[in-house]
Amino acid sequence: MWQEYAIILIRGIGLGSVYALIAMSFNIVKVSSGILNFAQGNMFVLGGMLAYAAVALFGQPSFIVWLLLIPVAAIIIAVVLLIQGYLTLLPLSYSDDQQSWLITTMAVSIIIGAVLLLVQGPNALMVRSIFPNVPLFGMRVPAPFLLAIGLAVFWYVVLQWFLSKTLTGLAISALWQDPVAGRAAGLKVRRLQLLAFGLSGLIIGSTGFVAAPIITIASDSAVAYVLNGFVALVIGGVASNTGALIAGPLVGVAAMLATFKIGGEFQGLVSMLILVGILLIRPEGIFGSTAARRV
């Protein structure tokens, strides 16, 4: 009995670390430009596809090759996000209508999904982990669950250092608090925002690559990841990476519990109820300071 719960717990935390990473990649773009990038889910799936492509090209990679391929995948997705970021920010600079990103980021998500469907068809891709299952508490846990936890901690540490210790990171984290004051202070606003998009690409690309064996890599699986990442973001508090790191696993465990106990078709409902519940009880999240409420 307890073993079943241990499985749920470990897998939930692993999957939840993926949600935490998605939330962190949301955060950095959000604090610099106010944009919530709906296409982030597809970027994540693309990262997973790179893992599939790597196997298709090189066969099952050795550990060293696999390790080297992580930054490669991260950089490829970062470039894709740089292009997306450039195009998303473009209309914002010449129009007073500042909500076009709602549509453009969703449209990019639809476009990527459509291309994946054309290239790949409706079926999900399977990626086999290069690591054997890890024995833990007398059961065998697929390694990517544990790797995802490690990756979340890694990116958390990197982001905390970058955003508070370096001047560039500090500027990125401050920009959206007052973009005009930022401009007046001579900050290169557009360039910093693009940098944030790129960074979010590094995070999400590496996540997709590492977690590939435990996620659904399909043309229509992105929305569910965006949604769960967003739930983690809200529970943790928007703009708080610490919150994301803690909330992600909570969401993951809840989702696993729902799948095991009530059945997969209710997983969406459970996520939604968690989201609604949190927003009703504590709209600013656990670590958030800027409230979702405007009254």
């Binding site: 195009l87 209309p91 453009t104 990019v108 998500s109 639809i110 476009i111 054309l118």
Partner: peptide, 19 residues
């Protein structure tokens, strides 16, 4: 099979050119 692609592209391009 190109419907979703056309749909996404139209929305994207319109917002880019006419925010």
């Amino acid at each position: 099979e190109y419907r979703p692609l056309v749909y996404g592209l139209v929305a994207f391009l319109v917002m880019l050119l006419m925010p």
